[in-house]
Design a binder for these strands. Structure first.
Ligand SMILES: [Zn+2]
Length: 360
DNA sequence: AGCCTTTGACCAGCG
DNA sequence: TCGCTGGTCAAAGGC
């Protein structure tokens, strides 16, 4: 609707009425890489071991958020510098949900670089409730004027977690793009080096697919402008044959990712770096490891979607760190079933919003 | 040659 | 039941 037309479809109306089309597919590409005004130097790096769920608990984040002025500015609408790359692998969340609900696997992870609405809300079943409570409380403290509810999705979904950080944080963090690679969750915790981020970042623009580089291969299967979103939402699916993981994200005109949502978890290792080696070899390696580890311990009932989770935490600096308080393997079974959150410490520090959804 | 992006249309869920 | 919205499919084109 607005003038964003520059991108591609902009009609929020929907499909039938207004073809968002336009004409050339090239538009999307135009904004590619070079356009990212983000400074990649210091970014929030999320080490390969970051899991989306990790964001769930992020006291730190909240604290930071507090700094936000907010209501007035409240409009975090305009993202400035943020780049978020997430990978998909809501380990803990997933498990939790599955267990709790008894549903198959539903995981949805949402990462929002710019918190449009600054609020943290988490709806979880019993288990999560605890966590939710925490989050909400924090929110309130921060004076988030916003209601706990961010999106309908949350409500609808059985379990979802959403964390949002304020733009401020982002800025503070440094104008760095926040890259989150959750998939990799290498419990190893390699250290979250920001270096990695840079690589990814740079690759993101280069690669044909501008989707965030999380180490997996994604194929875009749709794009739509959702009502509440300012920008069109892109739908990506993991290219692996057996993998049903989906990723949705919204990008601003600048090419910055404003929101990322992951659904499901990869049950396969990441592809070799060869394809996306450009992004960062380091990540790949780590990722690999992680994949295996996580896979091994799968739960029996779990299906190819739900996986164990690894405790990762994001550093207050903006970097994500793996909090290995417990072993991921071990933790899986027990943790997810009972109280993943309680056991695991997740710290969310990025200025984005995290959304975990279970829908599978 | 293969894979991916683009894009309109179709479908399902919900109020 | 209708309209709206979000999500997905599939054809076409590009790299
Ligand atoms: Zn996958």
């Amino acid at each position: 609707m607005d003038s964003n037309t520059s991108r591609s479809e902009v009609s929020d109306c929907g499909d039938p009425t207004r073809p968002e089309s336009g004409g050339g597919g090239a538009r999307y590409k135009l904004m590619s890489p070079a356009k990212l005004p983000i400074s990649r130097s210091a970014c929030i790096t999320i080490p390969p071991g970051l899991s989306p769920t990790s964001f769930l608990e992020s006291p730190v984040l909240l604290s930071n958020v507090k700094a936000e002025p907010s209501p007035t500015t409240g409009t975090f609408t305009k993202p400035r510098t943020a780049l978020g790359s997430l990978s998909s692998t809501p380990y803990s969340a997933t498990t939790v949900s599955s267990t709790a609900c008894g549903e198959r696997k539903s995981d949805c992870f949402e990462f929002r670089p710019y918190a449009r609405s600054n609020m943290v809300s988490a709806d979880i079943n019993h288990q999560r409730s605890t966590q939710c409570a925490q989050v909400q409380s924090q929110c309130h403290s921060q004076s988030f004027a916003s209601p706990p509810l961010v999106k309908g999705e949350m409500e609808v979904s059985t379990n979802e977690l959403s964390l949002s950080a304020s733009l401020h944080m982002l800025t503070s963090v440094a104008s760095a793009p926040a890259e989150v690679d959750s998939d990799e969750l290498n419990q190893t915790g390699l250290s979250s080096s920001g270096l990695q981020a840079s690589q990814s970042d740079h690759r993101a623009g280069t690669a044909p697919s501008m989707s965030s580089d999380d180490g997996y291969n994604w194929r875009k299967y749709g794009q739509k402008h959702v009502k509440g979103s300012e920008f069109p939402r892109s739908y990506y699916k993991c290219t692996h044959p057996n993998c049903e993981v989906k990723k949705l994200f919204e990008r601003s005109h600048d090419g910055q990712i404003t929101e990322i949502i992951y659904k499901g978890t990869h049950d396969h290792p990441k592809p070799q770096p060869s394809r996306r080696y450009a992004s960062g070899s380091v990540l790949s390696m780590q990722e690999d490891r992680f994949d295996k580890s996580s896979s091994l311990p799968n739960q029996d009932d779990k299906s190819p979607g739900a996986y164990g989770q690894v405790p990762h935490a994001i550093e207050p600096n903006g970097a994500l760190e793996v909090s290995t308080g417990a072993n991921d393997d071990t933790g899986e079974g027990a943790e997810d079933d009972d109280d993943p959150f309680s056991k695991r410490r997740y710290q969310f520090r990025t200025p984005l919003k995290l959304f975990v959804m279970d829908t599978y």
